[in-house]
Write a protein that binds this DNA or RNA. Structure first.
Lengths: 227, 227
DNA sequence: GTCTATATCATGATAGAC
DNA sequence: GTCTATCATGATATAGAC
């Protein structure tokens, strides 16, 4: 809490916005709340970011740039080591989802706050948010899809894409960590089973995802053609 | 579109609210949008429902009452037929998630619109919404948890609860059917692989969920005790 | 760069005529 | 039950002094 008194304001705004968007959503958070929590003037947001839309984009960009580069780096590394052989599905799943979850252990990269924001936002209705997220993600998702195609040559590609989709959903939901889920599930949790214990969540989630990814292929009730 | 000219207004409001909340979220939808689309007067919402909060609760209650009763009915039926024997996990999963997805084939029960709204709302940040959803769901989730405990006696209960949680996430995400996902996944979809073809989605999702539910148990890296 | 003050507009809700 | 008119509030954004 020293040093560059300058971009301090900028960072304080981003931190407050990250936390509040996580807690109340984009539409549910006002600029007054953000500047109030950041302890800066109301006008500072527009000065530094231009608009509320640009602000949330910056909130994501600040974290996602690193995450997606890291995901590509890890995949490159795995493929280099494999020297042309297909990877194990569990390696790919861990490189994509594990890297994301482990990021939450690093407070300087947003910690659980950003992870939860990300989980919630993937289901967010605002079109422009989903739009730029899709753009941020496109390259990395394409690379991972290709890796999965190679790793699972017997599974139809459409099936793999759907299962990627299901894995994203299970993970987003798990990391969104809404209180609703604690209520819905509402079990007597032991401390080591808490949502916040990422070291316990990660192996659990990985088992589930890999089980789903490698599940028996579906039996369609009828080879019906288009209606 | 005739008959009771009276509660017609009420239904029109509920229909419009359902669609708009699905498309833009709770905070992102205004009463003016709702009454505009419903073709009724702005004051009608407050007259019929009292407030925006009560309105969205009614939007959900109208559909969830039936769904959750149906889920209990189907589970009762399965347990009656099993006569004390544990059910197959796939039967339980289908009774819970399959019943939900098949509801979307019935336009008079909200169709895809309500299904998507439901998927998105489970990750919604607004506390009061998650609060009453949790309340609506509590009984049915408890019953299904018990059924899963019996069906999978070798799997620790905490593990089953987590996997239920993951299944909910994968399903919510799949039915939320955001355009973002089409972009993220962005494959050349064949018509029969479209999000809207529930008859194709259901078997796919079931395979994935059951694969995840029955996956190998996780290996925790270290039997660490509390910090 | 940061502040105050304010412009402009949209929101949820209600009072009261019909 | 339905309408018009309006209130009170809070929203995003900006102009202009310091």
């Amino acid at each position: 809490m020293v040093e560059a008194r300058n971009n301090d304001t900028r960072e304080r705004i981003l931190d407050a916005a990250e936390r509040l968007f996580m807690a109340h959503g984009y539409e549910g958070t006002s600029m007054r709340q953000i500047t109030g929590e950041a302890g800066v003037n109301l006008a500072a947001v527009n000065y530094h970011f231009g608009s509320k839309e640009t602000l949330i984009q910056e909130v994501f960009r600040r974290r996602l740039d690193w995450l997606n580069e890291e995901r590509l780096r890890v995949l490159d590394e795995l493929e280099r080591e494999a020297a042309g052989q297909p990877l194990k599905p569990s390696q790919i799943v861990d490189a994509f989802f594990g890297t994301m979850l482990r990021m939450a252990e690093d407070e300087s990269r947003g910690g659980m706050t950003f992870l939860r924001l990300l989980g919630r936002t993937l289901a967010e209705p605002s079109e422009f948010i989903r739009g730029f997220l899709a753009h941020e993600y496109k390259t990395v998702v394409d690379r991972y899809k290709e890796a999965l195609f190679k790793a699972l040559p017997d599974v139809p590609k459409a099936e793999i894409v759907w299962r990627f989709h299901f894995m994203l959903g299970a993970t987003s939901y798990a990391i969104a960590g809404t209180d609703a889920l604690r209520l819905v599930t509402d079990w007597q949790i032991e401390p080591e089973d808490s949502v916040d214990r990422l070291d316990r969540l990660l192996p659990r989630l990985m088992s589930f995802l890999i089980g789903g990814l490698r599940a028996q292929l579906p039996q369609f009730p009828d080879a019906a053609v288009d209606r």
